[in-house]
Amino acid sequence: MVSDIKVSIKNLYKIFGPNPESVLGEAKAGMSKADLLEQHGHVLGLKDVNIDIQARGIQVIMGLSGSGKSTLIRHINRLIEPTAGEIIIDGQDVLAMSDEELLNFRRFKASMVFQKFGLLPHRTVQDNAAYGLTIQGMDKDEAIEKSSYWVKRVGLAGFENHYPAQLSGGMQQRVGLARALATDAEILLMDEAFSALDPLIRTDMQDVLLDLQEELHKTIIFITHDLDEALRIGDDIAILRDGAVIQQGSPQEIVLNPADDYVRDFIKDINRARVLEVSSVMDSKKPRSGVKVDKEMVIEEALQIATANDYKPLIVTEEGKAVGSVQFDAMISAIARPEKDAERNPEYR
């Protein structure tokens, strides 16, 4: 992917407490969250967060509850004021914006989807979807006309005149999505948008999002605590713990090279076959015959092909040219859950 940074978060700190500035020095010097709380009575929300977010991709930020991920996403549209740091979006520092600029940034540039939906209970689906547009100052009829396209796109045709309370959770979140998409903002902030939904609906909504992204190419910042979800939709994943980023990389990199035990714990239960690509287990041999597979194919699919071809090695290609091969047993070993000591089998890393 061409490097094209849309959002750049630099040295971001957030400290909660009566006088955050007074303890910023200690936090910058590396004092831990527990010590800061014990010695100074302040809570370290975010600690030296640096993330560069690619344009037109899905950046997942994940962590367990209390890791600061919801705090982080609220800094991007400044629902929470930082203690120190910069957030540069298209060359402009969000944290230095005037009130007026900030309002316009929120109206036109970044829209948001919430875990608890945040719909207006006294307005219909139609009016909720048009909310962002009416806030922009658009005429009500025009706003409804424009947003009704998105209501249909998220699959709510026929429910325009229902109130949110009459809809299921999944449908309410579709309204939330339609509302966010209707404003045409380039950046979509999704705060645990699908976490409140049951698993089937969640997968369903992920499909809706991925489908829309195929066509819209927005810059999506997606917060989740669910690694399967992160791996499924993320182009890039940043993992937060105690307010600090402990690893950032593609899903593949994170599964192959977990930075520490915390990340290793995270990834131990995932379906590795669905994440790892054949390039991670290929060798440089180039057999003369065999079925060709692209190097970005995930092992799950490659295994099916290999099984159908008598477990023979597959030829790995890059843009159509053979670059190596992959053995059946290498793939099997790669998807086995690793022992605690990941160094044990360096061959498959």
């Binding site: 549209n77 629902l79 309002l103 316009n104 940034f105 929120r106 109206r107 036109f108 829209s111 948001m112 919430f114 608890k116 939906f117 945040g118 719909l119 207006l120 209970p121 909310y131 962002g132 806030i135 922009q136 509302r179 404003t183 902030l189």
Partner: peptide, 11 residues
């Protein structure tokens, strides 16, 4: 949550 959503959309 509703208030936060309204704020996030620039109200």
């Amino acid at each position: 949550d509703v208030m936060e959503a309204a704020t996030a959309f620039g109200a």
